[in-house]
Amino acid sequence: MTTTPKDTATQLLDAALLHVPFDGWSETTFKAAIADTETNPALARGLFPRGAVDLAAAFHRQGDDRMVAALKARNVSDLRFRDRIALAVRLRLEAVEDKEVVRRGVTLFARPTHTAEGAKLIWGTADRIWTALGDTSDDVNWYTKRATLSGVYSSTVLYWLGDDSPNHHATWEFLDRRIDDVMQIEKVKARIRKTPGLGRMMTGAESFLSRVRPPKPKRDDLPGGATLPR
């Protein structure tokens, strides 16, 4: 059987996950994964040019893939939209088998040199959720929805990492509160629209922002963007 680059990427990630709890997403972990899988170092570096950083990013995207698959397997037609979002975030966290691996990732992406990458990954998760739920916005709302959900998701992850309640019950309550907060903001915006003067100003601003369009899809077959099987 011929081993494809995708197979090799998966093997490297699986091997790395055994070392991350002890050595973090580090060069030590990357080299250990190469040794464990007996992968040609040049091939490994071609798949993950930044080493463990790209492995950590691949791990995050793998969790997104699993979340989307789990969400598609559910019948959410009877759920309120806010409950669909809550379910998606919950499924994303439940896709993780080892909290310590995520904790090490949070530490990695908190470093100044990698914060942009971390923010990009969180934005990607929010985008996958909205897309999976059928979002068709093509104006500034495309950005505001993802920005808001990115904030909800990132704060929920941090809470979840420190949660030792049974079945993470406290985390799901925290998540519900965060989504309720967002819904309150939408209610305030609706009231402003009905307020003379302020309503006209807001309508004018929204009319201007409606010209904003979401970015075009980018290629995902470039180095450092190794796609793993779902």
Rank of each mutant, 00 (worst) to 15 (best):
M1G: 15
M1E: 11
T2Y: 09
T2D: 03
L12M: 10
L13P: 02
H19E: 06
W25S: 09
K31Y: 09
R45G: 13
G46Q: 04
G51M: 00
Q62Y: 14
G63A: 10
V68Y: 00
K72L: 06
V76E: 04
R84T: 12
V89F: 07
A95N: 11
E97K: 07
V101L: 08
V101Y: 03
V102G: 01
G105V: 02
V106T: 13
T107A: 05
A110G: 01
R111L: 14
P112K: 10
T113H: 00
A116F: 07
G118K: 00
A119E: 13
K120L: 05
K120Q: 10
K120N: 15
W123C: 08
G124P: 12
A126F: 03
D135Q: 01
S137C: 09
D139E: 01
T144M: 15
K145I: 12
A147Q: 08
S150E: 06
Y153G: 02
T156A: 12
L158P: 00
D163Y: 12
H168E: 14
A170V: 07
T171Q: 02
T171D: 04
W172L: 01
F174A: 14
R177S: 05
R177K: 14
K189L: 13
K189M: 15
A190I: 09
A190G: 12
K194A: 06
K194C: 01
P196V: 01
G199V: 01
R200C: 00
R200N: 07
M202K: 00
E206M: 14
R211K: 14
V212I: 08
P214C: 05
P215R: 08
K216N: 07
P217F: 12
L228T: 04
R230P: 08
